[in-house]
Write a protein that binds this DNA or RNA. Structure first.
Length: 290
DNA sequence: CACCACCCCTGGACGC
DNA sequence: TGCGTCCAGGGGTGGT
């Protein structure tokens, strides 16, 4: 399940391969992965909306969103949801015949001309929680979509996190998952950052001492930063821009380890539901502030 | 406004 | 082996 580190690693692996490439054709196999604000996109779509005819100039990321910018000014924004993948493969000489039943879950492909030959960029998403948004300009991407998100979690500082949490009555875990407050943290890294900062996930935001909010901001940056270095967590469906599984090197301290002993104190890690998400924490190392 | 439950969707794990 | 059931979760929507 891709969160910020996986999307950033994806951006870094795609960038050297596709920036500078020309998009010569787009094959949209499933229209309903195209989104427009809220739900499925209505109305006509032409391939220029999906960057056909442009040269890719830039890959950008905010939170879990990946933006691909073309020299026409147009931008597509990809969100991987739970099971989305973007990867590059060598282009087949001719388009294979489309089967009646599409079972590979590949919803869109872009044929790219590069100085090293033809490539195919692929968007695949079995569970279809992800999607593709199209914009006429970077400016519109920001004004219509990214403006709804909080600051990127990699750059979060104590002052901003403090401001966000100041009036919050809800569980800190729920606040960290709220992309309007902070963009990029998902279930895995929320649990890991709270463990690293020694804060119980059910603590109320407003009750956490300011100094500890600073430690939490630091923990968020640090947990995300080391996950990026390791190439993402590679749980389940994640692959990078080359289609490779990640390193599997990240040792999660709490995520997915309910019932196992805490790495610090040896107590059994507890598991419960907070904000509709499975949450794992150490009842001894993580203090609750009510 | 703040917060929360529900829903979308599929593959994989598990029980029988 | 095969089938049914349950579960994972990001984020939008609608209710309180």
């Amino acid at each position: 399940m891709p969160e910020l580190p996986e999307v950033e690693h994806l951006r870094r692996t795609l960038e050297p391969r596709i920036v500078g490439a020309r998009v010569v054709a787009v094959d949209l196999r499933r229209r309903d992965v195209l989104r427009d604000g809220a739900g499925r996109r209505r109305g006509k779509i032409n391939s220029a909306d999906l960057l056909a005819g442009t040269r890719i100039t830039q890959l950008a990321r905010h939170g879990k969103n990946l933006a691909i910018v073309g020299d026409s000014g147009r931008v597509i924004c990809i969100h991987l949801g739970m099971s989305g993948q973007m990867f590059v493969r060598s282009a087949s000489p001719s388009t294979p015949p489309r089967r009646k039943m599409q079972r590979d879950h590949i919803h869109c492909t872009w044929r790219l001309q590069t100085e090293h030959g033809d490539l195919e960029l692929v968007f695949r998403d079995p569970r279809r929680f992800g999607g593709i948004w199209t914009f006429y300009s970077s400016d519109l991407l920001h004004r219509q979509r990214l403006c709804k998100l909080g600051p990127d979690a990699l750059t979060i500082n104590a002052a901003h996190l403090q401001r966000t949490l100041a009036g919050s009555d809800r569980a800190i875990k729920a606040a960290l998952l709220d992309q309007r407050a902070l963009a990029g943290v998902g279930n895995i890294y929320a649990d890991e950052a709270l463990f690293a900062a020694g804060i119980h996930p059910r603590s109320r935001g407003r009750s956490i001492p300011a100094g500890l909010v600073g430690s939490l901001a630091q923990a968020i940056r640090s947990v995300l930063g080391s996950a990026i270095k390791a190439g993402g967590s590679s749980i389940r469906d994640y692959v990078d821009g080359n289609g490779s599984l990640g390193e599997f090197t990240i040792q999660h301290q709490v995520y997915g380890r309910g019932g196992e002993p805490c790495a610090l104190c040896g107590r059994r890690l507890r598991q419960s539901q907070i904000a509709q998400r499975t949450t794992v924490y150490c009842p001894k190392c993580q203090r609750i502030y009510r």
